[in-house]
Design a binder for these strands. Structure first.
Lengths: 125, 125, 125, 125
DNA sequence: GTGGTCTAGACCACG
DNA sequence: GTGGTCTAGACCACC
């Protein structure tokens, strides 16, 4: 069973997207694997303190992307293979790093400064 | 007069925030300086292909943060000093790097991998 | 549930202010009481033939003045006490009467004429 | 030459409408008479501390209502007759009193209360 | 031309 | 269904 961490509602990004990201990142990290069971809608909404409809929406999108399989009466489970994980990894990494590097470049930060800053922040947080 | 580049409206983040960030990052980079004139609401909205009201919202927030000064009949202009720029730099850097490092950690990336990836992406883009 | 009458949009005064005044005057008259439920944004906007956002603006201002309480998923309700009602009564009466008396004085109407005119109009309307 | 009083820009109603009302009310009061000359656009805008375009707009509307006559090179002058003044008086009085009586009735004020209140305010202001 | 305000429609998260 | 936010278009006063 996949274990979920809490969400910060102050994030600004829609909750259902945070759920999607959490699962995708877990798949990339290897903490979420093919065949793993997800909590039921009710369980997850109670666990995260959010509305069941919001969970439902996230599950629907995961189904649409073929990342989970849902059957009435049973819990949903992950359907992952190596190709999907590779693609997820590439896409997510690219998005995250690209948006940060663009931000830093716009602020006039050089590559070396950036690497130093990231090294410092990596320890701090 | 500050020159604007185009935005990608597909970004998902609100347009008015992209405008805010563009100006703040320019101030940090030093490409936007104290006294610089901003385009008018109409000019900028035409340039970006958006509604003047969206620009108005961004400018109103910049005015509330005392980063620009507005006056009817005149173009708005930047009101920056060193302390404000330092604070902007610190806040923006922290936000950008923090969100990326968190994402990468969730994907199980180590610090050294992260630094290598960033170095590679920095050249590519 | 508070019941609304129709508005004349030809009035010239902003619609959201007419909504504000309608509720404040009802509170002064005692026809709108503490705890009373307000219609939802959609209901009221449909009833008045206006955009939900215009209602939203009026309700937001009422909330800022602590005259109503809003919560997602529930209808808003009035939060009135005697002190607030007394203050509302005083403020509204002063505004309404002051603007009329000034207008009449500018037209050279004497106090006695004014009283006669008002007495006549009061019956007519 | 008609003498103008100052305007309160905080009124909320458009300035050009305030100018219209000032002249109409003066005509009803008899302080502004047929043939009276108005200040020029430039004079009036300087006197009231407002923009010439705003004055121009008010003059245009007065012309459209046949209340003034403008000729290039000469000052505008009032064109009033008894019928027009009677109509103005009736319309303005009705508007002012009607809006106030409606407001007071919405607040649950009785006619006698209203008359007392108006008598009191008339002296105060 | 300038900045500012009012109204409108679509979308989001939530009950 | 509920409240809240983002974007959009029209209008106003002013230079």
């Amino acid at each position: 069973m996949i274990s979920f961490m809490e969400f910060k509602p102050t994030d600004g990004t829609p909750i259902y997207q945070q759920i999607l990201l959490y699962i995708k990142r877990g798949a990339v990290a290897g903490t979420i694997r093919d065949g793993d069971e997800l909590p039921s809608r009710r369980e997850l909404s109670a666990l995260l303190g959010i509305n069941p409809n919001t969970v439902q929406k996230a599950f629907k999108m995961l189904e649409d992307e073929k990342l989970i399989e849902s059957q009435t009466g049973t819990k949903s489970s992950m359907t992952l293979n190596d190709a999907m994980i590779r693609k997820l990894r590439e896409d997510l990494l690219k998005d995250d790093i690209k948006s940060m590097t663009e931000a830093l470049r716009q602020m006039g930060i050089t590559k070396d400064e950036a690497l130093r800053l990231i090294e410092r922040f990596w320890e701090e947080i």
